[in-house]
């Protein structure tokens, strides 16, 4: 281990510890008292009386039939500038969600909600980097969906990712359209490790396809390529949908000859078997083998000279 990597390793061990200490000892940010929230919320509702109903049933509700304890945030917890707005009520002197940038929206939500998902979004997640803000997926008012997702259809993500939507209409596809899986079954929106930083053992596919996950005695390196991006299953498969069978990138031997040429002997032996049959007719354990390093079908006979050597 080089010195720089050792430093990274220990930094990674120590950082959560330091953060834990900070989270315990940190000073509490300025917050409003319960009385202040009640008082100002009543003031707001004098003019915006429909807003109380718009938050009913959500964690942001500002009224309660039973007690005042239901009010945890009030109107002024999110809308800044209320002191001036009360005196001079115009739309310009109070903040509303859609008038804020992505970072500002994250700051407002982050006053209460610091979840793994939210931290992921504002750190290095592709959504955050592309300027996608909280309110493009979540709606606070007039919404009773879980987690305040703007639309709780299973394929809500596809309303922005239209190109991905069409991939699920191809010849072979994961069963998203039939509702059997969801986008978030594979895409972890709470992973603070940016998906493009999915270093090391990425078990996204293996969570459902354990039979192909290994570890095998003889690994096909591409399956467990520990690369930062690329490598692994997606080298050969298109996970959303593919014009080919079994989500394969290319038809026939295409995925194999992307990296491997057809060996000369394969072109001549057994009547030119390499040209007539697909690679995986014989190399059937292509994800990994417990039997031989060439990933050959264990049922094949290995008493011939070439294959004996292969084993």
């Amino acid at each position: 281990m080089t010195a720089s990597k050792a430093l990274c390793f220990w930094a990674m061990i120590l950082l959560p510890t330091v953060l834990l200490a900070l989270s315990v000892t940190a000073s509490t940010p300025v917050s409003y008292s319960k009385d202040k929230l009640l008082e100002t919320t009543e003031l707001c509702l004098d003019c915006h009386d429909d807003m109380a109903e718009s938050l009913d049933g959500s964690v942001h509700r500002v009224t309660s039939e039973s007690s005042s304890s239901a009010i945890s945030i009030g109107c002024i917890g999110c809308h800044d500038g209320w002191e001036v707005h009360v005196e001079d009520p115009t739309v310009d002197n109070i903040t509303t969600g859609f008038g804020l940038s992505a970072a500002m929206q994250a700051e407002v939500c982050g006053r209460c909600h610091v979840t793994a998902h939210q931290v992921a979004m504002v750190s290095t997640d592709p959504h955050g980097n592309a300027g996608v803000a909280c309110l493009e997926c979540h709606t606070v008012h007039f919404n009773s969906n879980e987690k305040l997702v703007a639309n709780d259809r299973e394929v809500f993500c596809l309303s922005c990712h239209g190109g991905i939507a069409t991939e699920f209409k191809r010849r072979s596809a994961h069963p998203l359209e039939s509702g059997n899986i969801r986008c978030v079954d594979c895409h972890d929106l709470s992973g603070m490790q940016n998906p493009i930083f999915a270093t090391g053992l990425d078990w996204t596919c293996q969570d459902c396809h354990s039979e192909l996950s290994g570890p095998f005695l003889y690994e096909h390196p591409v399956v467990n390529a520990h690369l930062v991006e690329g490598g692994g299953c997606v080298e050969c498969h298109q996970p959303h949908g593919s014009p080919n069978d079994r989500l394969l990138n290319q038809a026939g031997d295409g995925v194999c000859i992307q990296c491997h040429g057809i060996p000369p002997k394969h072109r001549v032996v057994h009547g030119g078997i390499g040209g007539q049959h697909t690679c995986v007719n014989c190399h059937s354990d292509i994800h990994g083998s417990f039997d031989n390093r060439m990933f050959l079908d264990p049922d094949l006979a290995f008493d011939c000279y070439c294959h004996f050597l292969s084993k």
Binding site: L19, L20, T28, P29, S31, R111, C112, T115
Partner: peptide, 8 residues
């Protein structure tokens, strides 16, 4: 654990 903008 969540407390005023901090999470563990």
């Amino acid at each position: 654990f969540n407390h005023m903008g901090r999470m563990l």
